[in-house]
Structure formats: structure tokens, C-alpha cells
Design a binder for these strands. Structure first.
Lengths: 204, 204
DNA sequence: GCGCCCGTATGACAGATGTCATCGGGAACC
DNA sequence: GGTTCCCGATGACATCTGTCATACGGGCGC
């Protein structure tokens, strides 16, 4: 066997991260050479240790897993990325694939799969969880225009129209137009329902 | 040394669960004798294997960790419970303590802590993450009456008043009164803001 | 060049929501 | 027995939202 695959493991939950390090450490052909608890750390450590594969949690403080993957594509070409996530939203998968991610797994996958996927990605292959892939295909593309998505995102935490208008530098009337069309496009009962749907789909 | 502490580990994320099993398995005085991926499974397995300590994820399909803890208190007295969670809401801690839970940890704790807490709980002691405890104290009690909380919960997913009224078997006017008073009590801008606040606090 | 869509805006209108006053019944506490 | 709170309800009013028509400038594709 050649030298082991050098792996970075990034997850903000210490308990999970150290447990996963244990788990991957059992594989003789894998070596976890770096750990990180935030997106920024992940980026820095990956570059510093020139890792072969980065295993990134999707939700982390600072830049999320996909943002880190985008950066890595430029700063450490040839480094494979595997994204691991608790909440599989269809839109995330698409974003991840666009960022050059080649492995995408929910945390509900069995443990043996992770090591296999790391190897596969290192060898240049791809692995996307079949169920998430199916969801992504079923969900399709976002019907929202970029501006509609912006406004809907600002509306997502329950802010009134005037506040959204101010934060988006729009007239209140325009905001209502965007929200209205978003509600119609998403088949929602109101803006909050629409925001919930869009969030579930990973569109905002 | 006496016989090892018999532990149940329940988490719906396979990756995490098996990794944690590995981790706890390294401790000579701990034996993970059962695993579960749902609340119902956790309850059944805990009783079946008569475990000493149950380590439960807070969010699981079916009954959540605290609900399982409540059941266990009646069905398997003497069994210690440790709750582990990603999202620490102040209200959860209070609910957990009320259910007789003696260990409460965020998943960001270091790995060594978990084993220690399992031992401590088994010995009859308590351990609550200091940061979560501080948050819980700062957050205080819910100012909402039970009915206000019910209605706010139904409102949380963006349903219109009429639907909430129907689901709560109330008149629409009454629903609006409850929502209004909840909004005032929580200092929110509108019902959605109020729902978000209440959820963040773990009050609904 | 001509259409088409996006971004932005205004005005108008119906319906939903937030607020307030007020009512009555019941449970708890002193 | 009185006070206080929660539950449930109604009516009125002001405001906020959702919807629609309409307008204009800027890209993009053909």
C-alpha cells in the first residue's frame, strides 16, 4: 500500500468531530492530519497541511462547508471535498456540486460509507447519497428570481415590510410585489409559508 | 473494578451514533450494550437491556430525548439519563431537569467530558453544561400562559388565523387575542417574530 | 430592431392581522 | 367571600398584507 490518504475533518461539534476522527483512524489507509471547528479554520488547516481530502460539515460557524469548498477549489486544487450534513436540503446539493464537491452524505448514513466515500473521492470519483439526489431532482430549480429570493430571505424571520424594504434598499411597494410573486410561485398561503418552503428546498 | 456501566446510545444519525459508540467503547469501565435511532426504539432497548445510563440525543424521530427520559423515569427507575444536543435552547434544559435528567451536554463539549458525565450520572451525580445553565437562568421562565403557547406554536409555521382557530378549537377572535398578548409579552414586532423568539427560548 | 423578462416603482382595493375594551365563567389563593 | 388569574368570546377600529394593473428602463436573444 502507498502512503495513507491525508484527511482534514471539520465539524463544530467537538463530540462528533473527535468521534469521527476515532472512526476514520481505524482505517489503515486513512490518516486524519488536521481538524477544524470553523469554516475559516478548515480552510487554513487544509492549505497548511495540504490534505488530500477535506471532510466538511455543512453547517459551521463562519463560512459553511460549501463556501469552504469553493475556496479550496482555487487554493488547493486536487483536494477532494466530502460534505456531511444533518439537514439535507435539495438546494444545498446543487450548490455543493457547483462548487466542485464530489462527495455528499447525510449524517444518517452508515459509518462504513464515510471511509469508502473518502477513498472514492480521493481516487477522483463521486458519491452522492441516492436519497438526497432523488430529492434534489424532484425539487428541481428554484423558480424565484434572485431579487425575489433576497427579499424572501429578509422576510424569513418575520420582519415587517417596511423593515425589509429598508434592509433591501427598496420601496415598500416593490417588496410587496416580490413577496406576492414569490408566494404565488411557491404555491404558499402567505409569505411565511413561502419562506418556510424556500428554506426547506434550500432556495434561500 | 466492578462490572462495567451498561450504556444505551440513542441518536438518529448513524454516523454520529456509531462514532460515539467507538469513542465510549475505548473506556474500559463503560459498555455500550444497546443502540437506538428513534425515541421509541430507545425506550424499548433501554428497558429490554436494563441499562444503567441512557445517552439520548435531544432531537430524534418519534418521541424526543426528554419524552423518552420521562417514560424511563417510570419504566426503569434508577436508570440515569444524559441528554446530548446540538441546539441548546434554555427551555429544553428546564424540561429535561423536570423529567429527572441528570446530565445535559451540548455536542460542542469535548469528547472526554461525555464519558465523565456518564460515570457521574451513574454514581447519582449531576452535570449540566455551565454555559447552557447560564443561558437558561438568563432566559428565565416562559411568560406565556399554556394556551398562549399552544396557539403560538400553531402559528409558528405561518398558518392564517382561521386555520389556527380551527386546529385549536377556538374562535378566530380569541386566537387573535392570544397572539396579541403573546406578541406584547415577548416584545415582538408580530406573531412570527414572537414565534421565532419563543422557539429560540425553547418555550414552544 | 423587437420581444421578453427582470428590476423597480406607484396607486388602489379587499382581506387579514394587531390592538383595545368589555364580557362571563371557573379555579386558586388569601 | 373577595381578589386575582386564566380561558373563551364579541365588536370595533387602525394598520399591515396580498393582489392586481400599470409604468419605465435595461439586458438578452433572435
Amino acid at each position: 500500500m502507498t502512503s495513507p490518504i491525508r484527511v482534514l475533518l471539520a465539524d463544530d461539534e467537538n463530540l462528533i468531530r473527535t468521534a469521527l476522527v476515532q472512526l476514520l483512524g481505524l482505517e489503515p489507509d486513512l490518516a486524519v492530519v488536521a481538524e477544524a471547528a470553523t469554516g475559516d479554520e478548515a480552510l487554513a488547516m487544509a492549505v497548511k497541511h495540504a490534505v488530500d481530502v477535506a471532510v466538511l460539515d455543512l453547517q459551521m460557524p463562519g463560512p459553511d462547508g460549501i463556501a469552504v469548498a469553493e475556496q479550496l477549489a482555487g487554493r488547493l486544487p486536487g483536494c477532494g471535498v466530502v460534505i456531511v450534513t444533518s439537514h439535507g436540503r435539495p438546494g444545498h446539493l446543487k450548490r455543493a456540486l457547483g462548487a466542485g464537491v464530489r462527495g455528499f452524505l447525510p449524517k444518517t448514513t452508515s459509518a462504513v460509507t464515510l471511509a469508502e466515500v473518502v477513498r472514492k473521492v480521493h481516487a477522483g470519483g463521486r458519491h452522492v447519497d441516492p436519497e438526497l439526489a432523488a430529492e434534489a431532482i424532484a425539487a428541481g430549480d428554484s423558480p424565484l428570481t434572485p431579487r425575489e429570493a433576497d427579499v424572501l430571505e429578509l422576510a424569513a424571520d418575520g420582519a415587517p415590510v417596511d423593515e425589509i424594504a429598508e434592509r433591501a434598499a427598496l420601496s415598500p411597494g416593490t417588496v410587496r410585489n416580490y413577496l406576492s410573486s414569490a408566494v404565488i410561485k411557491l404555491g404558499a398561503a402567505n409569505r411565511h409559508d413561502a419562506a418556510a418552503t424556500a428554506r426547506r428546498m434550500g432556495w434561500i
